[in-house]
Design a protein around this nucleic acid. Sequence first.
DNA 1: ATTATCTATAGATCTATAGATAATGC
DNA 2: ATTATCTATAGATCTATAGATAATGC
Lengths: 238, 238
Amino acid sequence: MSTTAGTPAAPRGRVGRPRARGPVADGLAPRDGLLVAAAELFTRQGYGATTTRAIAERAGLRQASMYHYFAGKEDILAALLEGTVRPSLDLARALVAHPSAEAGAEARLWALCRADVELLCGGRHNLGALYLLPEVAAERFAAFRRVRAELKAAYRALLAGTAAAAALPGAELELRADLVFGLIEGVILIRRQDPDPAAPALAVAAADGALRLSGAPEAVVAAAATQGAALLGTLRTG
Amino acid sequence: MSTTAGTPAAPRGRVGRPRARGPVADGLAPRDGLLVAAAELFTRQGYGATTTRAIAERAGLRQASMYHYFAGKEDILAALLEGTVRPSLDLARALVAHPSAEAGAEARLWALCRADVELLCGGRHNLGALYLLPEVAAERFAAFRRVRAELKAAYRALLAGTAAAAALPGAELELRADLVFGLIEGVILIRRQDPDPAAPALAVAAADGALRLSGAPEAVVAAAATQGAALLGTLRTG
DNA sequence: ATTATCTATAGATCTATAGATAATGC
DNA sequence: ATTATCTATAGATCTATAGATAATGC
């Protein structure tokens, strides 16, 4: 890339004292390596059971070096949570505000469900499972929980626009929105126990399921799936 | 389960050195008090973040006294897990084996879902949330996970007997069973964030939802709800 | 000079054991 | 004598800071 004149075979050097364990293969920036390591450990062993030493060591660093990048364990979890909920919320907002007469609420709800499951379960480390850690209830993560509540509101808004739910009384609608949101979170748990089902297939099945759960008859589910998939395509390219 | 028989106006004396903090009001046996305290703390703060001191103190004991009843924190979690999954599994077996021509697979699936949600969310402390702790993946709790897998198999068996699922290919059936099971687990999470929805109403809504998710049309959902509720009544009295 | 890392460690836990103590039971 | 609890504490952590060190950059 930056082939300045002079020594063409630059000694491949990195600033700073070399690592005791040698450089890491995966080529991640140190900060990203710490995030990946922490995500893996938090979701598999739990937050409290994961030590700063375990995180750092897995990222190829010594324990104390972690503090060059994060002020502590809590900051790592906060960064992970923030980074994972943001894309979901952006998409949800785009779908709720979408000025499309051609895509009904059913298709948009389908699209949100599928995209959300893909984002949450798609990565190597099932990042969505972070949302389910009990520790996230702590005061420190209130900001994240607020963003997450906004996401849930988007689910509710889309659901309210569907033909099957339009006739429901308010309390019943709320309950059904809880169930749909709960299904998506439940899917994250499926993936935790058994990483077997490929994420894309699971995402489509979950989106179909969300529509059924919302009360849509089979014909509507099929139509929403077709339109929803198309909608996702246009949103991603546009 | 302390015996309440014997002399009704006994001198109110208890064997053993008195507690430093005085006797507890809630009348639970010490072991049960520890279990209740641990359940509350594990589900709210997480397992790793909960110290033996916090558990004991909340139960009205000093930290070291906990070891009179449990060999350690892990044993407490094991006891809680075992105690909560057992009733669900007993009911599931009864429903799968039920020799009833009058109650179809749909009604039995509905009954299982409703009873499961009631058991998991019904108590004061949302015990079901214990299942979702990442720490449960540890080797120590393999026995519990096996029992839980059996419960999931019961869900799958009932689902396979429904009219909507009977025509599905095997992989598709498996995926749908995952979703139904995931919905029930997701409901536990709903309750964690917001203990607002009354457990009975939530249980009925979740059971209805599970039927919709399984592909049943509205008329079948309604029939299954009626028959399923009746079935639960007979199983509980008989 | 700047940077990324290291080593070493103080201070704060937390767990689990040892042994004392204050009740009742016989 | 038995029981349930207590106090005290050793040993094993774990977190976060201080200060040294080994690279590159200029």
